[in-house]
Design a protein around this nucleic acid. Structure first.
Lengths: 199, 199
DNA sequence: GCGATAAGTAGACAGTGTTAACTTCATGTC
DNA sequence: GACATGAAGTTAACACTGTCTACTTATCGC
């Protein structure tokens, strides 16, 4: 008598179970290329049941990506609120960004994977911009306080975000090879970058 | 009498035809998620013929990614050779990088897509590092000539690469939204970044 | 209890990657 | 020219996947 046989006909919260199962499966080889059938199997339902909650696999992946953006935003907002001045907060938020990305490789890749699901819709969603807004705010604050080089905030914010995103992706992809850029490439790059940003 | 019927039994250069067909198909919706069967169909051979030249789809994608890195390297080396001093060359190479990435979205994504093919092997390949080597050289030159801020070359190179890569990916993914970062976010970010790098 | 509807099941279908047996052909040797 | 060999390509089969539809189960409101 397996668990599946003991479950009542209705799961009770299948949508949530599918999300959690899929998020967990992201960390297995193949990442987001898990099959919907395996998600259903593990959630203890028939292979077509997920279609009751998500119109297709892309929709499931989109929702997971947005959950990822929510979490990234929370991580940055949290780092910000426990830091000192704007420059310190920016540094803390940057580290939080890297910690999040490097600590959740598969989720991070899904969030930024352009050919995954309907990424255009994801990237238009307000939830995808929360983390970036934190960066924008900190830069504006830091400039006003004379702690950060005075440059166009928009361009500077894009540059900061590009730096975080680029470092995360290059590190995750194994392209920052120790024999070329040393053992602590991310830290060294961050230090180098902020030498050009902080006053 | 179709072209397929007029072709001799042996294609003559099927491996190349498959590569070219697949690279062309990269630019269609779905990018690298094209089917091997469609590649074969367009190349005018049976669906299983590609297996004579590539053990599986991943191997084909890997080879295409490496071709992409070759091209990126050529673009940077070319920009470098027609620029002036090291600082100018770095700026030119950076623009060449962005032009390449933004001009070949699907190829660029394949090059850096960690869950595509056997990306670990691709990223260990010497061919994946040619462009980065150009950046390293230019930074060392620029620092020696007093044109670029003196910082650890390894960290600085990682930072430059992260900036280029991050900007390319964020732009390609539609995340540098004009209403947030202006119409010329890439240019503005690049200017901001280099203000912190050039003397 | 009944009707409506949401949630889940079972089966079908088309398409895909891959494999193996078979076929075609080119090349080298005698 | 005949023959053997091996590479290149074909055909058919298989397992798997995403998706759809008809059917079943169960819940809720009247």
């Amino acid at each position: 008598m397996t668990e599946a046989q003991k479950r009542p006909y209705h799961h009770g919260d299948l949508r949530q179970a599918i999300l959690e199962t899929a998020i967990a499966m992201l960390n297995e080889p193949g990442g987001w290329q898990f099959t919907l059938r395996e998600v259903a199997r593990r959630a203890g339902v028939s292979h077509a049941a997920p279609y009751k909650h998500f119109p297709d696999k892309a929709a499931l992946l989109n929702e997971i990506a947005l959950i990822g953006f929510d979490r990234l935003h929370v991580a940055l907002a949290s780092a910000r609120s426990s830091a000192g001045n704007a420059a310190e907060a920016l540094a803390a938020a940057s580290r939080a960004y890297l910690v999040f990305g490097l600590g959740n490789p598969a989720l991070y890749r899904l969030m930024f994977g352009a050919e995954i699901g309907n990424s255009a819709a994801v990237h238009r969603d307000r939830r995808a911009m929360g983390a970036f807004d934190v960066v924008m705010d900190l830069l504006a604050e830091g400039q006003a306080a004379g702690l950060i080089e005075k440059r166009g905030v928009a361009g500077q914010a894009a540059s900061v975000w590009a730096q975080m995103h680029g470092l995360t992706m290059l590190k995750l992809d194994g392209m920052l090879r120790p024999e070329r850029v040393g053992e602590d490439a991310v830290e060294a790059a961050l230090a180098s970058f902020f030498e050009g940003v902080l006053v």
